[in-house]
């Protein structure tokens, strides 16, 4: 059955041989999803991923996370599978094998898109040789975003599919309200000093952590408390007990004292 519908994906071109499922199978699948009273066998299809997702899947069935306590078991043939786990951005070369694996699995089957690439094509979504995720080719029941999803996120998705937990994420839309103005962060610190502190912290600790450290420093600097600033910093550093942080805070304090 060829379905020329691109509404689900971001692709302009529908994948040839894209599958849609009949009503009867969809109904059967609903009962399977709601009321699975046996082990769920999972077959994993790598459709051009970087192998990060595979590593996390195997981490999820390791004793630490132990997906087998829910009866989730990886099998080596799609003919044994209830659940098909598609990873990767669906390259051109993997479209046909992906469809073959889908057709080989007995109905009703659940298809899970695993990882950012599986969900939407991820960082590879606009590459010439990918279809941009699993759903332009195969109907998907559950999406697990993440790059890669952590084992805990994988367990959560399985618990969601088995009806143990509820879906947390909902679509959100915000419309700007009246008089919605933004106050700059740390308004009590002069702009030039703020820029200088952030720059130095980022130089020392790297981009993201530098920003976090500068943020904490300015929070201490701007707080209106009876204890003097130096004492507050010392108290904070004692609590954190990290010589690297002490070094960076020393440099930042020098900048403040210089002005």
């Amino acid at each position: 059955m060829i379905q020329l519908d691109t509404s689900h994906g971001t692709n302009l071109v529908p994948a040839p041989g894209a599958i849609s499922e009949s009503e009867q199978i969809a109904k059967l699948k609903q009962t399977l999803l709601k009321d699975i009273r046996r082990s769920a066998y999972v077959f994993r299809v790598d459709c051009g991923g970087c192998n990060g997702c595979e590593i996390e899947i195997f981490a999820a069935i390791s004793p630490l996370f132990d997906a087998e306590r829910f009866g989730i078991k990886l099998v080596s043939s799609p003919r044994h599978a209830d659940v098909l786990l598609y990873t990767g951005a669906m390259t051109r070369a993997m479209r046909q094998p992906a469809i073959r694996a889908y057709n080989a699995a007995p109905d009703p089957k659940i298809v899970i898109s695993y990882g950012a690439c599986g969900c939407t094509g991820g960082i590879f979504h606009d590459l010439y040789c990918v279809w941009g995720g699993t759903d332009p080719v195969i109907p998907v029941d559950l999406y697990i975003p993440g790059c890669p999803p952590t084992p805990a996120a994988t367990i959560y998705a399985f618990a969601l599919a088995l009806g143990l937990l509820d879906q947390k994420l909902k679509a959100r839309h915000h419309v700007e309200g009246e008089d919605e103005n933004v106050v700059p962060i740390h308004p009590q610190i002069p702009l030039n000093l703020r820029v200088e502190l952030e720059r130095e912290a980022r130089r020392m600790a790297g981009y993201r952590h530098g920003r976090i450290i500068a943020d904490r420093f300015m929070h201490l600097l701007g707080a209106e408390e009876p204890t003097p600033f130096a004492e507050r910093v010392q108290h904070y550093l004692d609590r954190e007990d990290d010589p690297r942080l002490a070094e960076i805070f020393g440099k930042l304090t020098d900048i403040v004292l210089k002005r």
């Binding site: 689900h8 969900c119 759903d135 998907v140 029941d141 559950l142 999406y143 697990i144 975003p145 993440g146 999803p149 952590t150 805990a152 996120a153 959560y156 998705a157 969601l160 937990l165 879906q167 947390k168 994420l169 909902k170 679509a171 959100r172 839309h173 915000h174 419309v175 700007e176 933004v182 700059p184 962060i185 981009y207 993201r208 920003r211 943020d215």
Partner: peptide, 30 residues
Amino acid sequence: EEVCPTGAIVLSGDFELAVFNKADLMVTAE
């Protein structure tokens, strides 16, 4: 998170992102 000048977007510790419907993965603001 690194580039946001106002701290409007921050990465949290929440990893429970799996959804049944793809539309639920979107956050929009006007």
